[in-house]
């Protein structure tokens, strides 16, 4: 476990052990529900989730990575820890993922800044240690760059489809790939989201706490409003489920996967406007480009509508995740039809 300072916990609250942190500060969860002075922290936690649900990144009370006032620090950490409690109490998975993703984006900024901080070596060391601790990736500084072992680089970059991430387009010497601080963090972004999500999943679900009911109820409503018509309904074939999953986790889905997903949903009669939000979590989301591509797939501009590729094709693209329910079909559109 990392030993962290005050500011560090505020930047990376997911590194805190919730139970220990509360005990350390002399609080119990129940107090937050009843003590009128502490109740505002639940509001803050709720806002933090709401911001994430809206696709925004929660604005911290941090300036240049330092807490602005003595009082702000616990607020930062408590609101994160309480947000997890709220999420566990409401149990809506769509919110888990969005929250994890937004928090990852938020932390990513600090991590990048810490990593690129030449003036303060201790901040750089901290970022390096966090990366080692969370992902078992050992990076080291070399001039303005960071060097990461080739196998680690490959592990995280293979799912990026942009050509500049191909190993051949990187500077590689002595078994190391050289990256800028920004690229280093970009490489690990999806991992950070996965880490935070797993932290939420693994957290214990407490009994309902007095004074939390109202916020939990509002979260359930929020999650419902959120459920877009394309949320997984249980009848999609495994390849499609997998693609939706990848996107919901905020990971990169290769172009071929986006093509498959878009073409499949549009062929099932979904509207472009309903399909587009699915791609919102993609690390390189661009609304205009997404709409353009979907319209193109749908043949909206008078062109032909593209159809989803066959199972054979998807197998060669590593997009097939066949289960026994796929037996005897050659095309994802046939999935679930009565035989």
């Amino acid at each position: 476990m990392l030993v962290l300072g005050q500011d560090e916990f505020a930047k990376y609250p997911f590194l805190a052990d919730a139970g220990e942190y509360l005990k350390d500060k002399g609080f119990t969860l129940e107090q937050f529900g009843t003590d009128p002075d502490l109740r505002m922290l639940i509001d803050k936690a709720f806002e933090r989730i709401q911001a994430a649900a809206d696709g925004a990144i929660y604005k911290s009370e941090l300036t240049d990575g330092k807490v602005t006032s003595e009082a702000a620090l616990p607020r930062e950490v408590f609101s994160f820890l309480l947000a997890i409690v709220l999420l566990k109490l409401c149990g809506m998975r769509t919110l888990f993922n969005r929250f994890a993703l937004a928090e990852a984006r938020r932390a990513e900024k600090y991590l990048e800044r810490d990593l690129g901080n030449i003036a303060d070596k201790s901040r750089e060391d901290l970022a390096i240690r966090i990366i080692d601790d969370l992902f078992s990736v050992r990076i080291k500084r070399d001039g303005d760059d960071f060097a990461i072992p080739v196998p680690d680089y490959l592990k995280y970059s293979v799912n990026f489809y942009e050509r500049e991430w191909k190993l051949v387009n990187r500077r590689v010497y002595g078994g190391l790939v050289y990256l800028t601080p920004h690229e280093t963090i970009r490489l690990l972004r999806a991992e950070l989201g996965v880490y935070i999500a797993s932290k939420i999943t693994r957290a214990r679900t407490p009994q309902m706490i007095q004074g939390f009911e109202d916020h939990v109820g509002r979260l359930v409503d929020l999650a419902k409003k959120f459920a877009t018509p394309v949320v997984y309904t249980g009848e999609y074939p495994p390849c499609i489920k997998h693609a939706i999953d990848v996107l919901e986790r905020g990971e990169n889905l290769p172009h071929s996967g986006r093509f498959m997903l878009g073409a499949y949903l549009l062929s099932r009669g979904q509207a472009v406007e309903d399909v587009a939000p699915l791609f919102k979590n993609a690390p390189d989301y661009n609304e205009r480009v997404t709409l353009y591509q979907l319209n193109n797939l749908a043949g909206s501009d008078g062109g032909t509508q593209y159809s989803c590729p066959t199972c054979d094709k998807l197998r060669t693209q590593d997009l097939c995740f066949a289960t026994s329910e796929c037996d005897g079909i050659t095309h994802p559109m046939q999935f679930g039809r009565k035989k």
């Binding site: 196998p151 970059s157 293979v158 051949v168």
Partner: peptide, 27 residues
């Protein structure tokens, strides 16, 4: 020891690297 553990996709990147395949002018 580390390269031994890499999967097929990773090795495909290694192969392209060695063949100087997929290089872009920006590099």
């Amino acid at each position: 020891a580390e390269l031994q553990k890499t999967g097929s996709k990773e090795r495909s990147q290694l192969a392209d690297y060695i063949m100087f395949n997929g290089i872009i002018p920006e590099t």
